[in-house]
Write a protein that binds this DNA or RNA. Structure first.
Length: 658
RNA sequence: GCCCUCAUAGCUCAACUGGAUAGAGCAGCGCACUUCUAAUGCGCAGGUUGUAGGUUCGAGUCCUACUGGGGGUACCA
């Protein structure tokens, strides 16, 4: 049962006497921020002032007069300008919490209208190593899939792999010119990665050599301007005026620093090749590598047998590579239909759009011009190649025909919002207006310096290395012998390994999901594996404590459930914990409404904290009264189930001891 | 240039979509271990929510302008 919706129903019934849209008005029910105002507050009296032309407190009184909540709440109170404060009865909380023990859905009720959602997430480019940038889409998409399923909706997950792009042109080119056959036979993926990196650095080298002089000039100019602006600012007498100029000169300085950074970055790319005489010689022999790579890609797309054979040979290895990461992270897809799958459909898509008069030639390319957009969606380049807009349209049509989804979520970087705005604008024009399309966008992962996370070489930090680092850091932090010394029996090596793995991987997922998806967030390995604060270790510890109590009493969750002892809340810590446990459905509703798993993280952290307070104040086995003992034990079990289930919905496992 | 997005405590982030005195954590200071794991709990301190206006019973949240960060902007994805 969901408390908030139950109260909303009651509220709506009371409002039916006053307004003709009671259900809508009843939505203005919120949990209170301050326990002094009870547990929930109805805020609908104030806004009704105009509509009913009466003072809000009077309206509130009328609502309260009709409000039938005596079975759930104490007498409602009207406070301030017209808030209606509701305080749940302790006996009701106890009964509801007791019911939780026998409910595998933990209070979640089947939806009135189950939806079918197709979630498109992760979607890495294969053939290059997965990096930290893929983490957000993967982790958020997986958590959303788990949450929507738990809420009773039908979910189809699809990994729209980038398996047909320029990166294959790069490794095909690399293979043709630089392959080490022995290395390829021995470890194909490693060799392909080496080839990818080599070709990439050669392309970067040539473009950096060209770009460097202008970047230097720009950096110098900006530097001078910034210096001048700072000087000028110092000479200004008027204080306010000086402050304003200072601000502007600071901005200029930052821009100058960024330009200088860019020069350093370019120089780095040049140095990377020039430091190695062999590589430099190779660079000299492959001056047109950038366009040659595009040609290899184009040949692949046009069905060139040699390139197609190479692609067929490379792809399984590339898939093994990413599947290893998914396996590690316990992430699964119903479908993996990459770009290559849609490639044969693209000419037909363009043809149809042209025939329908939606697309037309412009500057040699085939474009869909849309009102409200400056630039068109280009679906075929002047050289005949197709673009991701084309693929996305083909994908949309295919999904519509094969998956009967009523909603499609694209868990993709915020930077692509323009693209999705266009895609979603085209959809109704091609008869797909019935699909609810949603760009579930997310922000960038930043390093500790506030810049997008990169390694020192300028490449994106590799994902597997990151996971290894997290597991190692978790081992150091969580399996510190001083801390685990009191565990009896002592932790075995296998148990330590498992704890480090669960906490390490969990830390990465948790830190990502803890931030609202739309904001950028600062990635700090040290903070995410920390034991204090809003971290996965804190939740794991709370969970481990619940298990510790069961062990101490030589009992199990099943035994406690079968005993059917009622929960009754007396102490504040018991009440507040029990109420928190009843709110999982509310938290999940929020996740679904915003497509934002962070709401579940906040909820779980809040619940774990309340459990910790309970744990400190309400001993189980030392309680004198057997009824109190049984009630607290039942609360412990309910907590353990909520935390385990909640973390599971985030894709995170639990450990029994730590 | 135009469009999108962000700006909240020293730091990292919340704030249930317009509700009451803006909350957590970290860092700092203090208190509590004979324990079902102190990997915890409690307390103190920390804020003109970037600036200036506006909308209304009520604004961190909405509108306008400005300042600053990030991103995008016709053939990469």
């Amino acid at each position: 049962m969901q408390i908030a919706s139950l109260l909303k129903q009651r509220l709506a019934a009371a409002l039916a006497h006053l307004v003709d849209d009671p259900d809508e008005v009843a939505q203005m029910l919120r949990p209170t921020q301050d326990p002094r105002f009870g547990d929930y507050q109805a805020n609908c009296a104030m806004p009704l002032k105009q509509r009913l032309n009466r003072p809000p407190r009077e309206i509130a009184q009328q609502i309260v007069d009709h409000l039938q909540v005596a079975d759930l709440c104490h007498e409602p109170e009207i406070a301030g300008p017209g808030f209606i404060n509701l305080r749940l009865r302790d006996d009701w909380i106890g009964e509801a919490a007791t019911a939780l023990l026998d409910d595998s859905a933990l209070g979640v009720e089947p939806p009135e209208q189950p939806r079918t959602l197709l979630i498109d997430f992760s979607s890495p480019n294969v053939a290059k190593p997965m990096h930290v940038g893929h983490i957000r889409s993967t982790v958020i998409g997986d958590a959303l899939a788990r949450c929507f399923r738990f809420l009773g909706h039908r979910v189809i997950t699809d990994n729209h792999l980038g398996d047909w792009g320029t990166q294959f042109g790069m490794i095909i080119y690399g293979y043709k010119h630089f392959v080490d056959q022995a290395a390829f036979e021995a470890a194909p993926v490693a060799e392909l990665v080496r080839l990818y990196r080599m070709v990439n650095s050669l392309i970067d080298y040539h473009s950096a050599v060209v770009a460097l002089p202008e970047a230097r000039t720009t950096a110098e100019t900006l530097r001078e301007e910034a210096d001048q602006a700072r000087q000028a600012a110092q000479d200004i007498e008027d204080k306010a005026e000086r402050k304003r100029h200072k601000k502007q000169s600071d901005a200029l300085s930052r821009r100058a620093a960024a330009a200088a950074d860019k020069v350093v970055g370019l120089q780095h790319k040049v140095d990377a090749v020039e430091a190695d005489d062999t590589l430099l010689a190779v660079a000299g022999q492959h001056t047109t590598i950038a366009t040659d790579v595009l040609n290899e890609t184009a040949k692949l797309h046009q069905g060139d047998p040699e390139n197609r054979a190479l692609w067929d040979r490379f792809l399984p290895h590339c898939q093994d590579e990413i599947n290893r990461v998914y396996q590690r992270l316990d992430i699964h897809f119903d479908h993996t239909l990459g770009e290559s799958f849609y490639h044969p459909m693209l000419p037909g898509v363009v043809q149809e759009l042209k025939e329908a008069g939606l697309a037309r030639d412009s500057e040699g390319a085939v474009c869909i011009f849309l009102p409200d957009f400056d630039a068109p969606m280009i679906i075929q380049k002047k050289d005949g190649a197709f673009l991701y807009g084309t693929t996305d349209l083909a994908t949309l049509k295919y999904r519509n025909e094969h998956f009967a989804a009523d909603e499609i979520l694209y868990v993709v970087d915020s930077r692509q919002s323009d693209h999705f705005d266009k895609l979603f604008a085209v959809a109704p024009l091609i008869g797909l207006g019935h699909l609810r399309l949603r760009h579930v966008n997310f922000g960038t992962v930043l390093g500790e310096d506030g810049k997008p996370l990169k390694t020192r070489s300028g490449n994106n930090a590799g994902l597997e290395g990151l996971l290894d680092d997290a597991v190692a850091a978790a081992m150091d932090a969580v399996c510190d012998p001083d801390r685990t010394a009191k565990l009896d029996p002592p932790l075995s090596e296998a148990e330590r390994q498992r704890i480090a793995r669960v906490i390490g991987h969990g830390a990465i997922k948790y830190a990502d999901l803890a931030h609202h998806r739309t904001s950028d967030y600062r990635f700090s390995l040290q903070k995410m594996v920390a034991l204090e604060g809003n971290t996965v270790a804190y939740l794991q510890y709370a969970y481990a404590r619940t298990q510790g109590i069961l062990r101490a009493g030589q009992t199990s969750e099943d035994d406690v459930r079968k005993a059917e002892h009622p929960i009754s809340v007396a102490a504040d810590a018991e009440r507040s914990l029990a109420l928190a446990l009843l709110r999982l459905p509310e938290a999940l509703q929020q996740v679904a409404d915003d497509y934002a798993p962070s709401a579940l993280v906040d909820y779980l952290y809040e619940t774990a904290r309340k459990y910790m307070v309970f744990n400190d104040n309400c001993p189980v086995w030392k309680a004198d009264d057997p009824a109190v003992q049984a009630s607290r034990l039942a609360l412990v079990v309910a907590t353990s189930r909520v935390i385990r289930t909640g973390l599971g919905l985030l894709g995170i496992e639990v450990v029994e001891r730590m």
